[in-house]
Amino acid sequence: MRAVISEPHHIEWAEAPEPELGAGEVLLEPLAVGVCGSDIHVFEGLHPFVRYPVFPGHEVAARVVGLGTGVDPAWEGALVALEPSLTCGRCEACRSGHYNICDNLQVMGFQAPGAMAECFVSPTQNLHRLPETFDAELGAMIEPLAVAVHAVTLTAVQGKNVAVLGAGTIGLLVAQVVKAYGAASVEIVDPLEPRRRVAEILGLSAKTPDKAKYEVIFECVGNERALEAAIQGIHKGGSIIVVGVYGKPATISAGLIQDWEIMLKGSLMYTYKDYQEAIRLFAVGQVQGKPLITHRFSLQEVNAAFNAALEREKALKVMLARG
């Protein structure tokens, strides 16, 4: 059994063929799986890079329960976090170490089957071993934290005045990483009071949109209005990192990018070192994940979980777990 989004606005827990293990692959039982904003984009028919049916699940902590040929027996029973990027290893981006922008990138849960299932298959190279005492829900949140780590490492934040637009899961994690990396100040900007309240629980400053200016802005919303707000809110010579996923083209004040010498840069996913840093940040307590979890469901309750995630004023991280 596994979750399938057969078309926009339709997800169900359905029969699926038994997974087959190839060389270098392992069989995993998911312990905790997060519902991501990108999953909701797929559900709503707004993700630009998928074809239906889609088998979701890319934020996951799992237990290794079976080994394919050639796999080191030490993997048996391991607690792991999944890095869902499937890359070619041959293109220029892969050869230079930037495999997150592989020319042939596929992502488990989007272009390849994911982890919302009774069991699933992954290459061992996509697994990060976790300490046995590591909390499974935090293990599932390693993936979004790695997204945040990668974004923050794209520009200097130490000693800078920073804003994060959007107090969703990614925005709240980005803000915590920015704070951990020594920013002079970091403010979360979000119009929704419940999300600002979570930010404050995390020890972050949060406010509604205004006309303040910043040296660095992380755009974690993914729409035209937020990107334009970032351009209007940046100091001359400042940096904007675009982390939000866009479902359609955006019109922005491009003239200001040139005239103010704004650096506008996108951030996609992560690499191995970002995952390792995310594990460290959770392990030492520099980033909190638990306060972001607003809803919990069993794996079989995927329909209810996705509907809960659609209530954006109430939901942050929706988490699925084995029943």
Rank of each mutant, 00 (worst) to 15 (best):
G24C: 06
G57F: 04
G77D: 00
P48N: 02
Y52R: 00
L105G: 04
A61F: 09
E44Y: 05
R90M: 09
T69I: 03
A81S: 15
H58I: 07
H41G: 05
C119H: 06
D39M: 03
V26R: 15
A115D: 06
V64P: 07
C36R: 14
P30M: 01
G109V: 11
D72A: 10
M116G: 02
S122K: 07
D103G: 15
A74N: 03
A81D: 06
V50K: 01
I40D: 09
A62H: 07
T69M: 05
G109L: 10
T87H: 13
D39E: 01
H58P: 08
L82G: 05
P123H: 10
E76T: 08
M116N: 02
H41Q: 15
G77A: 02
V50Y: 01
R95E: 15
L28A: 12
N126W: 04
Q106V: 03
A62P: 04
G24K: 08
G24Q: 10
S96H: 12
Q125W: 11
R63Q: 10
I40E: 14
L86S: 14
P30R: 02
D39V: 05
E25C: 11
P19C: 09
T87E: 07
Q111D: 02
P73G: 08
G24V: 07
G66I: 08
L21G: 13
L46Q: 13
M108Q: 15
W75S: 01
Y52M: 00
V50W: 01
R95D: 13
C94T: 12
G89I: 14
G37I: 05
G37F: 03
P123K: 08
R90V: 12
C88K: 08
Y52P: 00
F110Q: 01
Q111Y: 07
R51N: 09
E20H: 13
E92Q: 15
P113T: 01
R63I: 03
C119W: 06
G70V: 09
P84E: 02
N104Y: 08
G68S: 06
G97I: 12
V107N: 13
S38G: 01
M116H: 05
